[in-house]
């Protein structure tokens, strides 16, 4: 299961494992803990079996790949190690036919971000993809997932998450065989979490800042406050520009712009 820190991939993996346990299936949920920060890509693994799961290693060739994040969903790496004939469930607004991932596997899509925003008010997509998982794989009953959710989120939060799961169950599309046979040439490391300098954090963004230079009054707020130095300043034009590979989409620049010259937009294509 691929996601980004803050989207709840680890919790989602535990909910699946707990739901499976409810149904009498043995399960195991392993998070790959690095130093994941909010926004950084990360992976969690789930094993389901009729017998007790004894191996304690990561899942290297999964049957199913679940992708919580629309930008990570564009990376070939999420399907690269799938078993032949496997399944990938992607959080994206696109139809399965439009997905540009290649290989021998089935593709299903669900717009979990929109569901999460509308039911939870926040882009935490972990539960909003679980309904689709239940429906498409048939591995778990919706009720077991709901029961498991209440264990992790008691009270009102649980109810909201259950609403997200139900909507995702209803809206999930049937999987189709992958249509692209050739993998896209460009490969990005989806495990770019961790310490140190990262190459490209574009996949961290939910929203992307866009500067309207005509409105900009050259106050330098966005430049001085960007934690990632993603805004470059041109002393001649007195205007900023964005280095998108360094931008994590925090929205700080837009928030600090006195004339609203920066807009945070949802770019998915």
């Amino acid at each position: 299961m691929h996601g980004r820190g803050g989207q709840g991939a680890v919790t989602a993996s535990r909910i699946i494992a707990t739901a499976a346990y409810e149904e009498g299936t043995y399960s195991q949920a392993i998070p790959m803990y690095g130093t994941e920060r909010r926004g950084a890509p990360l992976t969690a693994f789930v094993r389901l079996d009729d017998v007790r799961v004894r191996e304690r290693e990561l899942v290297h060739t999964p049957d199913i790949s679940i992708v919580l994040d629309p930008l990570i969903a564009k990376q070939q790496a999420v399907v690269d190690n799938l078993k032949p004939g496997g399944l990938v469930i992607l959080n994206t607004a696109h139809k399965p036919e439009e997905v540009e991932l290649g290989g021998d596997f089935k593709v299903a899509t669900i717009d979990a971000t929109t569901i999460a925003l509308e039911t939870l008010g926040r882009p935490i997509t972990n539960t909003a993809i679980l309904g689709a998982f239940a429906k498409i794989t048939g591995l778990l009953k919706l009720e077991s997932i709901e029961k498991a959710i209440l264990k992790y989120f008691p009270g009102r939060l649980g109810e909201m998450n259950i609403a997200a799961v139900r909507r995702s169950y209803e809206e999930a599309s049937d999987p189709i065989q992958a249509v692209v046979t050739k993998a896209p040439a460009e490969k990005v490391d989806i495990h770019v979490g961790g310490y140190g300098v990262l190459k490209d954090v574009s996949s961290w963004r939910l929203l992307t800042p866009e500067i309207d230079v005509d409105t900009c009054i050259g106050c330098k707020n966005c430049w001085i406050f960007c934690p990632e130095t993603a805004i470059e300043w041109d002393e001649d034009t007195m205007k900023p520009s964005i280095r998108y590979n360094a931008c994590k989409g925090c929205g700080l620049c837009a928030n600090e712009c006195p004339v609203d010259a920066i807009e945070m937009v949802r770019v998915e294509a």
Binding site: A40, G193, W204, E228, C250
Partner: peptide, 21 residues
């Protein structure tokens, strides 16, 4: 304020991290 930067970015901090700034 000097224009030149001394940090090498993007780093590993969360979005909007005050410490990174």
């Amino acid at each position: 304020i000097p224009l030149s930067e001394m940090t090498i970015t993007p780093g590993s901090a969360c979005q909007g991290c005050g410490a990174a700034l």
